[in-house]
Design a protein around this nucleic acid. Structure first.
Lengths: 125, 125
DNA sequence: GTTAGTACTTACCTAAAGGAAAGCGGTTAC
DNA sequence: GTAACCGCTTTCCTTTAGGTAAGTACTAAC
């Protein structure tokens, strides 16, 4: 059974626009650590070292960079409390929650894709 | 107004699983060209040179690699017709269409994110 | 004064992605 | 024969992401 290719994903005109939007989204979401850090902070606000401990494997250099990126993009805030010594607490913003639908679809697709790959490996080893 | 952080994105237990699925999905989708090539072929099947002409900026080396990757992952098929000279036509599979929901959410999110970034740049230039 | 903790930064290295340009084996047109 | 088109591959180079390890500036506890 064949699907008519026109209108199958999106019209040919909106295509370039859509692609640009998708690439923008992927740029923000992407990399080995960004989502892990967001999910970690969505569960609760944390200190630098707490994050580094929970997101196992991340180095302090990379974590510092990711936190800066995520702050710039509005996913987290860096709160400085003037205690002695100053305590810095990273917090997920409500904007992090706007990723909900995206993550739901990516999770669903990623899951079925892995199962599909497993099956095709069984068929042709 | 604060949102209760538990249950806000996903439960803390499914979190690691979900993250794995998302990273798997991103791995397949990712890179500068993959989605552009898929969208190009979803509109109609094409020759190598036609794709290279339509996806402006891609080099033949990179296109060859992307086509191999996409074929391995089941997004496209490489059809060889025994004419003289042989003609090779790349075709999107129906599996490409399973990305529909993912692309819809990424498009929507990417669009609103760009507008949000534009606004915040107007507020603090 | 030494040790430990917090929040990073700096310097150096590796691997992978991607770009530029040329080549190659075949065919077809002139 | 030669120029040009098809479908790539090869070589070389640059950029980027990420890893390792050490260092820094501060404070507090012992």
């Amino acid at each position: 059974m064949k699907v008519i290719t026109n209108e199958s994903l999106i019209g040919i005109e909106e295509c370039a626009d859509s692609l640009k939007n998708v690439l923008d989204a992927l740029y923000v979401i992407n990399g080995k650590w960004k989502l892990a850090v967001i999910l970690c902070l969505v569960q609760s606000s944390k200190h630098f070292n707490e994050i580094q401990h929970e997101v196992t494997g991340i180095s302090s250099k990379v974590l510092a960079k990711e936190l800066k990126d995520l702050e710039l993009n509005g996913f987290i805030t860096r709160n400085i409390y003037p205690t002695t010594p100053v305590s810095i607490i990273y917090e997920a913003t409500e904007y992090s929650l706007t990723l909900k639908n995206v993550l739901r679809e990516l999770t669903a697709w990623g899951k079925q894709h892995r199962e599909k790959v497993k099956q095709s490996m069984r068929l042709r080893p």
